[in-house]
Design a protein around this nucleic acid. Structure first.
Lengths: 211, 211
DNA sequence: AGCGGAAATGAATTGGCATTCAGGTATTAA
DNA sequence: TTAATACCTGAATGCCAATTCATTTCCGCT
C-alpha cells in the first residue's frame, strides 16, 4: 500500500485542511480565524490539524507556499505560450494576474490579504516562493531592457516592485469590492497601457506599439 | 483652568500613549503588540490607556486617523506651494510620498504595514481619512485629464489605485529594508518617470516634458 | 472475528493577554 | 490642614482560543 507521507505529500485529509484554511483565511484573515473554524470548514476534528501541521503558523506558511507554487506554475506555463516580444509578454503577465481574481477569488483574496499581513511578521521566514514570483516579473523587465524595447535608464528592481504594487493594489480592490461588476479584462488592458506608454499626452501622434 | 478634553482633545498623556502606540505598532504590528507594551513605551500604567481609549481597537483607529490627518495636511500644504502644471504637481506628490519615509520612518512603517492589515478587517469602519488621501491623488489625475496634459482614455480611479499601489509597495520596501542606503529622491524620480512617460522605448526622440 | 497499528477525535488543559477596579497620589480650593 | 476632586496605578480577573492527549475508530491482515 502506498501511504502518502503525512507531513509533506498530499494525503486527502491534508488537502481538506489546506482547502478549509484557504477559505477561512480568505474570509477573516489569519489572526481572526480560529483553528476550530478551520477544522469545521475542513470537516475534521480540531486535533487532526496538529497531525498534519506543527501549529497555526506552520499551516499558514504551508498554505502560502503551496498556493504560490500553483500560481507560479500557472503563470510560467501560460506565459510560455505567448507569442510576441517582451512587451506582449508583459501585457500577458498583467492580464494573467487579473484573470486569477475571476477564476479563483478565494486564492486571490488569500494572497492579497495575507501577503500584506505577513509582509513583516513572518519575516524570519524568508518567503522564497514569493521571491520566485517577483523574479518572474523581474526577468521580464530585465529582458525587455536588454533587448532594447524597454527603457534601461530605470532600475529594473524598482520597476518590478512598483509594477507589482500597482497590480496587487488593483487586484485587492477587485477582490474586496464584489459590488461593481467590473470588466476585469478591460482593467487589465488599461493598466498595461499605463505602464507601457505612461500617463502623459504626447504632442505628436507617432506613438508606437499600442497593441 | 482649561482642562483638555480627556477623550478627543490633546492631553499630554493621551499624546504620550499615541506616540508609544505608534512606535510599538510600527515595530510589531497590531496583533503582535501587547497593551502592556504600549504602556511601557508611553511610560504610563496599563490601566491609564483605558482612561483615554475605549479599547485596543479604538486606540488603533484613533492613531490611524490622527496620523492620516497629519499626512494629508502636510501633503496639501506642500502641494499648494508647487509651481507648475499638473505633471509637475504629480511629480511633487510622488516625491513627498517618499520623503516621508526619510523624515518619519515610524509613521511610514505604521501606515504601510497597518493599512495593509486593516485593509479588510477594519472595513466596517469606513476609513474616511484614507479615502481623503486617495481623493487628493485622484483629483490630481482628474485635473490633469481635464486640462489635457494626461491621457483621458484611462479610468482616473483605476489609475489612482494603481499609482497608489506602486508608491505604497516601494515605500514598504524602503521601510522594511534599512540595509541598502538607497537614494530616496532618486527612486522617487524614477517612479515618476515611469508613471509619466511609461516603460517603452520610443522610436523617434521627440519625447516631450521630462522635467 | 480478532489483533495491531495508524489515524482521528474532541473534551480538558493551559497560557496569554485585554480589561477592570480597588486603592493610591497629585492638585486645587477653602 | 483638610477635604474634595481628578488622575493614575498595576495586580487581579476572567475570557478566549491554541494545543494536548486519553480514548475511540478505522482498516488491513491472518
Amino acid at each position: 500500500m502506498v501511504k502518502p507521507d503525512k507531513k509533506r505529500g498530499d494525503s486527502p485529509k491534508r488537502e481538506l485542511i489546506l482547502a478549509g484554511a484557504l477559505r477561512a483565511f480568505a474570509k477573516n484573515g489569519f489572526y481572526n480565524t480560529r483553528v476550530s473554524e478551520i477544522a469545521r470548514e475542513a470537516g475534521v476534528a480540531d486535533g487532526t490539524i496538529y497531525l498534519y501541521f506543527k501549529n497555526k503558523d506552520d499551516l499558514l506558511i504551508s498554505l502560502f507556499e503551496e498556493q504560490m507554487e500553483y500560481l507560479i506554475d500557472r503563470l510560467s506555463e501560460e506565459l510560455a505560450a505567448v507569442e510576441g516580444g517582451l512587451v506582449e509578454r508583459l501585457r500577458a503577465f498583467i492580464h494573467l494576474h487579473f484573470r486569477l481574481a475571476v477564476e479563483r477569488p478565494d486564492l486571490a483574496e488569500f494572497i492579497t490579504v495575507e501577503l500584506r499581513q505577513s509582509a513583516k511578521f513572518v519575516k524570519e521566514y524568508e518567503n522564497p516562493k514569493f521571491a520566485d514570483y517577483l523574479k518572474m516579473l523581474h526577468s521580464l523587465i530585465e529582458q525587455g531592457q536588454q533587448q532594447g524595447v524597454l527603457r534601461s535608464d530605470l532600475d529594473s528592481r524598482l520597476v518590478t516592485r512598483a509594477l507589482f504594487g500597482a497590480l496587487d493594489e488593483v487586484l485587492l480592490q477587485l477582490v474586496l469590492a464584489p459590488e461593481a461588476p467590473t470588466d476585469v479584462s478591460d482593467e487589465a488592458s488599461q493598466i498595461a497601457e499605463m505602464i507601457v506608454d505612461g500617463l502623459i499626452v504626447r504632442p505628436r501622434e507617432d506613438i508606437s506599439s499600442t497593441g
